[in-house]
Amino acid sequence: MSNKRSTFLLSALVFGFAFLYVPILLVIIYSFNEGKLVTVWAGFSTKWYVSLFSNDGMIDAAWNSLRIGVMSATLALALGTPAGLVMSRFGRFKGRTLFSGMIAAPLVMPEVITGLSLLLLFVTLEQMIGWPAGRGLSTITIAHTTFCAAYVAVVVQSRLSGMDISVEEAAMDLGAKPAKIFFVITLPMILPALVAGWLLSFTLSLDDLVIASFVAGPGSTTLPMKVFSSVRLGVSPEINALATLIILAVSVMIVIASAMILRSERMRSRASAGADA
């Protein structure tokens, strides 16, 4: 009986992972296709990579995206970390419900709504106080920072909730003041969550098409906007090459991160084994 069940689970896993990975693998394979058509294998070639790197528009867009990504991930960390701290450690305060709502809602809010509303805000602000003058990298950065901060807050909050609060109390008991406790005790302990939060924000920012399309101005085309406009016309081997590069970069990053997590998990399990001995 349990055999039947594990066979079912195994096939579910195999099917599921095939579903997740076959399309990605096909993209990678066809990025090395000499021909332009997906259906025909015309031989191995790296010419699409060459043409990708000589596409100035694409390179500019990538550069824009990277700058926005780094800035908004960093800002999101600076805003999201205190937000997560407030949610898990500050207890009740006036307006807490609204605060937690403003953290949870961006996670699920359809992007078209967020994008439209931010654009209207920027336009209104410009009319009223003259800032931001026009739209571009800075408005995209603000937009990305806002929803990324919500992600960071959730990541930080869940890490803090899983952390023994008495460790921080012990520091206070031994004479450390709140600000010092945060920097000497809390911050080092949630460092993995902060790294994860930054990387998450960075990829979310790098990936966003819809919100950026709303709040972008002339000359601030991001990589997804560029990709979208070329993909709309159908399959393009250059995009395959770009996709392959992105997948490669992400895979390397993820493998390193998981290796680090695995290591710390192993250390933790060894620690608990030591406690039992």
Partner: peptide
């Protein structure tokens, strides 16, 4: 851990590219 990582990995790759893959 490996399986979990395999679930998360596509989530980190570009959303646009994952949709794009299905066009082909």
């Amino acid at each position: 851990s490996v399986l979990l990582m395999l679930v998360i990995l596509p989530f980190w790759t570009s959303f646009l590219i994952r949709v794009y893959a299905w066009i082909g």
